Simulated assay, not measured.
Amino acid sequence: MPPQLRPPASSPATGSKAASDSEAPRSLLLDLDGVLVDTLPVMEIAWHAVQDAHGLDVPFAEYREHLGRPFDVIMECLGLANAEAIHRTYTEASTVAAHLARGFDGITDMLVAVAAAGWSLGVVTSKPLLRAKPLLAELGCTFAAVRGPDGQGRGKPAPDWILLALVDLGADPANATYVGDMAVDQEAACRAGVPYIHAGWGYGRPLGPSSVVADSPRELLHLLGIVTPAAPFVEGGLL
């Protein structure tokens, strides 16, 4: 009988790397506006305040198209000068209307499930941290990294804030996922080498038809491979 052929044995280095990759901690980075929290009513009120205070006729719909970019960049895109004064007005009005912001349905349950699965959580947002952190606190979850315009690096679509958040988490891009809702989020993730999932419940569209899209926070868990217990059966309940 001819001898059986065996595959070549893996070298110790290769085997060690495979084991290390399989055991590497996973990280989930998320955008804030349009992914975790519905702040659109707040933004619309703040923009109307800007229109009134500065005599601008740029409609909110046009401002909304550029969400996800740093505020000063949005002003450049809209061809508006005096960005600093406009930002002050916008910030003041946003702070007053902040109580209108709401976490999206299913978001807190999703975050709890991700954390229970051993993933670390982080946020990458273009919202200044002074206004972002109170909104995150309302979700009742711990975010080990929060990166935005107050720190180092260039804003989205540059990859800097995503990469800095991964440094904060001690995570590798290959073991992370970024969830956003605007094209700039997707571009930033691509440039950072981080897999991207588009939040279909948010404010914008993905870059192309081949993009991975989650239509709900629960579907996001499925795409991440995180299994959650099925809802318990209640005797006499409607099917």
Results as ranks from 00 to 15, higher is better:
S216N: 10
T177G: 00
H54K: 06
E23C: 07
A176M: 09
V35A: 02
M75R: 02
S16Q: 14
H54A: 06
A83T: 05
E92S: 09
P25C: 09
A231P: 02
P229R: 10
W201V: 09
L78F: 03
A214R: 08
N82S: 12
S10V: 00
A188H: 11
F71L: 10
A199S: 05
S22W: 13
I86W: 01
P195A: 15
A189T: 08
P149A: 06
M75S: 06
L40I: 12
C77D: 14
A53L: 00
P159Q: 10
F60M: 05
A24R: 15
A117E: 05
V167P: 00
D181M: 10
A115I: 03
M110Y: 06
A13L: 15
P157T: 12
P134V: 05
V179Q: 08
V212N: 05
L56T: 01
L32Y: 09
W119N: 05
E65A: 13
L78C: 01
A98G: 01
E23M: 14
I86P: 01
L221E: 11
L40H: 06
A171N: 12
V123I: 14
L28G: 05
D168A: 10
F71T: 02
V179R: 06
A61W: 01
V184F: 03
A18W: 12
P12E: 08
E138P: 00
L166I: 07
G153H: 14
G122H: 05
G200C: 10
L29T: 06
P229Q: 02
D172V: 07
C77I: 00
P159H: 11
R191A: 15
I74E: 02
L224K: 11
L130S: 13
P41M: 08
E44A: 10
A137I: 01
D57R: 13
D185R: 09
V35G: 03
V42N: 01
Q51F: 02
A13E: 15
K156W: 08
T14V: 14
F233C: 08
R69A: 06
R218G: 14
P25V: 03
S211W: 06
P2R: 15
V212K: 14
K127W: 05
T177K: 03
D105R: 13
D33C: 08
A137M: 04
E187H: 10
G118F: 11
M43R: 06
V112Q: 12
T39I: 02
P229H: 03
E138H: 10
V35T: 15
A158M: 14
T89E: 00
P70R: 05
D109Q: 15
P2Q: 09
H222F: 08
A132Q: 07
L40Q: 12
L30D: 04
V112G: 02
W47L: 04
I107D: 02
E23A: 15
V213A: 07
L130G: 07
W119A: 12
I226V: 15
G148L: 11
A81C: 00
G68I: 06
L80M: 08
H54E: 01
Q51E: 11
E23H: 12
K127G: 02
A144Q: 15
Y63D: 01
